[in-house]
């Protein structure tokens, strides 16, 4: 039985979080998001002309996300630079997680580039990347009907835990890893993956807990976006 978490957190307790927008001055929008020791930065460029032309969609803009772990950001050996199968898939699901809040009809024939870089990792990297990217898009002034907040849920020995860290991810008897992203206002799901065993009841409970966690992340995203324009009294 998993009775007590390795780092002493409560089962529904997230690690300390920190967020900041405007961290990459050259970009149209940018943000940093840290959860525990996982640190992601995201920068948005665009909408801009998409070349070559055959990639263009005359109906709407194209969202192109690029997730990357810096060579030194893994827990073991150096990660070889360049896209891997893993990073390509994460880039793809990141696009799908963000698309529901955007309205790209306004920008036919263009591309919106979102670059996500992980500086340091302790699990939950795709969720941290999505959370940072959503802030960067908002910072870039896009019309978005909601933000997107993401969290990783784990099921260890039938116990649901929020915000899995590396130690839990490597749990010897195996665990079920379930990253999810929500539109916090609407409470709707934009990313859901599952790697491991669970059942209907557990999933329902996990989704409820995930939604609750994402509301807390949203508050942090909100404060970070507002702080950029804070007027010192």
């Amino acid at each position: 039985m998993y009775k007590k978490r390795f780092d002493g957190r409560k089962f529904d307790e997230m690690r300390p979080m920190e967020a900041k927008v405007g961290v990459v001055k050259r970009a149209d929008g940018s943000a940093m998001f840290r959860i525990g020791k996982t640190i992601a930065i995201a920068a948005v460029y665009g909408p801009r002309e998409l070349h070559p032309k055959f990639l263009q969609n005359p109906e709407e803009g194209v969202l192109r996300c690029n997730y990357n772990m810096m060579a030194f950001s893994g827990s073991g050996e150096r990660i070889k630079p360049g896209p891997s199968r893993r990073s390509k898939e994460i880039s793809h699901i990141t696009e799908k997680a963000l698309l529901p809040v955007l309205n790209l009809k306004e920008f036919p024939g263009t591309v919106i580039d979102v670059f996500i870089e992980l500086i340091q990792t302790d699990a939950g990297t795709r969720c941290a990347g999505i959370t940072a990217a959503a802030m960067a898009l908002a910072d870039a002034g896009f019309i978005m009907k909601d933000l997107v907040s993401a969290i990783s849920i784990g099921i260890i020995d039938n116990q649901i835990v929020i915000d899995v860290d590396k130690e839990e991810e490597d749990y010897e008897d195996g665990m079920c890893d379930m990253p999810m992203a929500f539109m916090p206002k609407a409470g709707e799901v934009t990313l859901l993956q599952c790697d491991g065993f669970t059942n209907k009841e557990q999933l329902k409970k996990a989704l409820e807990m995930g939604k609750e966690a994402c509301r807390k992340i949203y508050e942090i995203q909100k404060t970070a976006l507002k702080n950029k324009y804070k007027v010192e009294e």
């Binding site: 809040v101 978005m144 933000l147 995203q221």
Partner: peptide, 8 residues
């Protein structure tokens, strides 16, 4: 007030 997407 400064507001962000999703705020009522």
């Amino acid at each position: 007030d400064i507001v962000v997407p999703g705020e009522i």
